[in-house]
């Protein structure tokens, strides 16, 4: 059994409870024991680094110190924003030991910062540490027939010198993970465009515009639903979708699910474990596509025909 230090982040106990819940189920199936950091605090998210310098480092540092106490090699983080803050802070502190020493004085009650823990997003952990083969071997209910658009958002792969994971322009890890579950990952050009993030409350029209474009491109890809790995992306694309539809006059009807919900489904957990009623855009119709045969796209048919015709001439 593998052990993993786990940092859920504030939204895991709020808007993204279904992410947290299904993640725990999935890790159980994959034989990973998750140890939640006791008494963790908010990483400061967008606000701390926007307004302050020291607090933006001190808040994540407290969590890092607490995480180091658990003595596991790796810490897995559910929320993409927490992941970015914690990993960015670690890099910054490790490169500036003098600064690390000074910031450490603000959380010295918790202990000394050592910089020993390896930080991974849960998507990264599934992809790199567990591996697609193992994940594939646990699938009891293939998701074949389901077409998905994998949306990574900004912070899972960017900036690349902090995340050190996948491509910052066109990542494929989540796509390959979905294919391992049997689903079909569609070509989707807006994988890493920003959804508007923390402007959700303070600057809603920006979020509606940015998320609207993502929904539009996802719809055009032919996907039945969008798969995400970030709570803020999920709530912007899902909760704001009815408003976006109202303001653009376009009907999207695109449910937004966490990759762990689909993993749990493929691992044979009953639908009620996915906490589907929490979704603002209903998921049911999209999941009915599971088991359907996906016809070959017209383009591919045409190319095949042309190739056949050519070989006949020869």
């Amino acid at each position: 059994m593998n052990k993993l230090t786990y940092f859920p982040g504030c939204s895991a106990h709020g808007t993204s409870e279904e992410f947290d819940h299904t993640l725990k189920l999935v890790m159980q199936t994959l034989d990973v024991q998750m140890e939640e950091i006791p008494d963790w605090n908010c990483c400061g998210a967008t606000s701390a680094h926007v307004m302050t310098e020291n607090l933006a480092l001190a808040l994540p540092m407290r969590n890092l110190v607490l995480a180091e106490r658990l003595e596991n090699k790796t810490m897995g983080i559910a929320c993409a924003s927490c992941y970015s803050r914690m990993k960015g802070t670690k890099k910054h502190l490790d490169e500036n030991p003098e600064l690390a020493r000074r910031i450490n004085t603000t959380v010295i009650d918790e202990g000394e910062y050592k910089g020993t823990i390896d930080i991974k997003s849960m998507l990264q952990y599934c992809y790199e540490e567990i591996g697609l083969e193992t994940i594939k071997s646990k699938v009891t209910k293939s998701l074949s027939g389901l077409k998905v658009a994998c949306y990574y958002g900004c912070l899972l792969t960017r900036p690349k010198d902090i995340t050190l994971f996948d491509s910052p322009e066109y990542p494929m890890s989540m796509d390959l993970l979905m294919e391992a579950l049997g689903a079909k990952a569609m070509e989707f050009d807006f994988k890493t465009e920003c959804c508007g993030a923390s402007f959700s409350i303070s600057n809603t029209e920006v979020v509606e515009s940015l998320s609207g474009k993502i929904l539009e491109v996802a719809k055009e890809s032919g996907a039945h639903l969008i798969v995400v790995a970030c709570p803020l992306c999920q709530s912007n694309l899902d909760m704001r979708q009815p408003d976006i539809e109202k303001h653009t006059g376009r009907k999207f009807d695109l449910p937004v699910m966490y990759f762990t919900q689909l993993m749990a489904l493929a691992f044979g957990y009953p639908e009620k474990e996915l906490k589907l009623p929490k979704h603002i855009v209903s998921v049911e119709a999209a999941l009915k596509h599971i088991g359907e045969a996906i016809p070959e796209p017209e383009k591919v048919k045409k190319i095949k025909k042309a190739v056949e015709a050519e070989s006949e001439v020869e």
């Binding site: 910052p168 890493t192 920003c194």
Partner: peptide, 9 residues
């Protein structure tokens, strides 16, 4: 600025 880091990349 949303710190999405698309520019710096």
């Amino acid at each position: 600025c949303l710190t999405c880091s698309a520019c710096s990349g």
